[in-house]
Amino acid sequence: MNYINIPVYSYESETQKLWLVTKNELKLLIKIDGKTICLASDEIEYIESIAGKVQIVGKETYKSNLTLRELESKLPYFYRCHRSYLVNLARIKALVTYGKNSYGVVLKNRTEIPVSRTKVRELKELLKGTI
């Protein structure tokens, strides 16, 4: 885990609010166009890989040069539910079955993310008692 020991502020462009991020929160630093953006793990809904390009999705979507595997090792509260997705476990609202061997999770923001059938049992155990 990467913790930053200096005061770090998070900025929400929609509301133009700036706030101090606590030292105990996990941070993810992303470089975009020569700028470094700091995201707390609770600001991220999910991470998706599309055609080899990784997108970090929260209130805004950011492109990352890191791979899903690298992000998975940096974000312990995220689960690799599918080969193309890492999902924030704290954002999962429901685990749904679409049909025989077809599963997904619904996030609190109503986004639906697919779940590989090989991951369903493990995900149910992780979520036991939380949803």
Score class of each variant (00 low, 15 high):
residue 21 V to T: 13
residue 90 A to I: 05
residue 14 E to W: 02
residue 108 K to Q: 14
residue 109 N to A: 03
residue 51 A to V: 06
residue 95 L to K: 04
residue 122 E to S: 14
residue 110 R to E: 14
residue 111 T to G: 00
residue 55 Q to Y: 15
residue 64 S to H: 04
residue 114 P to L: 04
residue 44 I to F: 02
residue 99 G to Q: 07
residue 14 E to K: 15
residue 101 N to V: 06
residue 105 V to F: 02
residue 97 T to W: 01
residue 126 L to M: 11
residue 110 R to V: 03
residue 23 K to S: 14
residue 72 E to P: 03
residue 116 S to P: 05
residue 81 C to H: 02
residue 83 R to F: 06
residue 36 T to Q: 07
residue 40 A to C: 11
residue 55 Q to I: 11
residue 61 T to L: 04
residue 75 L to K: 01
residue 15 T to P: 07
residue 42 D to P: 03
residue 62 Y to T: 05
residue 26 L to P: 06
residue 35 K to A: 10
residue 63 K to Q: 14
residue 16 Q to V: 09
residue 16 Q to D: 15
residue 34 G to W: 00
residue 49 S to P: 04
residue 87 V to M: 08
residue 62 Y to H: 12
residue 29 L to M: 13
residue 104 G to F: 00
residue 60 E to I: 09
residue 13 S to T: 13
residue 117 R to E: 13
residue 25 E to T: 12
residue 96 V to M: 13
residue 84 S to C: 11
residue 56 I to C: 03
residue 11 Y to E: 13
residue 107 L to R: 02
residue 68 L to S: 08
residue 123 L to Y: 01
residue 94 A to Y: 10
residue 65 N to Y: 10
residue 77 Y to I: 12
residue 25 E to P: 02
residue 119 K to A: 11
residue 6 I to Y: 07
residue 56 I to G: 01
residue 129 G to E: 08
residue 61 T to A: 12
residue 94 A to V: 06
residue 116 S to T: 09
residue 64 S to R: 04
residue 131 I to Y: 12
residue 74 K to M: 13
residue 39 L to I: 13
residue 25 E to W: 00
residue 38 C to Y: 09
residue 47 I to F: 01
residue 25 E to S: 12
residue 20 L to C: 08
residue 15 T to Y: 07
residue 1 M to Q: 11
residue 52 G to L: 06
residue 109 N to L: 03
residue 114 P to F: 01
residue 40 A to K: 04
residue 43 E to H: 07
residue 70 E to F: 00
residue 93 K to P: 01
residue 70 E to K: 07
residue 123 L to D: 00
residue 80 R to A: 09
residue 68 L to N: 07
residue 40 A to N: 07
residue 129 G to V: 09
residue 88 N to V: 05
residue 25 E to N: 12
residue 16 Q to E: 15
residue 20 L to Y: 10
residue 26 L to Y: 04
residue 113 I to D: 00
residue 88 N to F: 02
residue 32 I to F: 02
residue 5 N to Q: 11
residue 111 T to V: 13
residue 68 L to I: 08
residue 61 T to C: 09
residue 52 G to R: 05
residue 130 T to Q: 11
residue 118 T to L: 11
residue 127 L to D: 04
residue 51 A to H: 12
residue 53 K to V: 15
residue 67 T to E: 09
residue 83 R to D: 08
residue 49 S to T: 13
residue 122 E to C: 06
residue 120 V to M: 08
residue 80 R to C: 08
residue 75 L to P: 01
residue 79 Y to I: 06
residue 74 K to S: 12
residue 87 V to P: 00
residue 116 S to R: 03
residue 65 N to T: 14
residue 86 L to P: 03
residue 105 V to W: 01
residue 101 N to E: 15
residue 74 K to C: 06
residue 4 I to K: 08
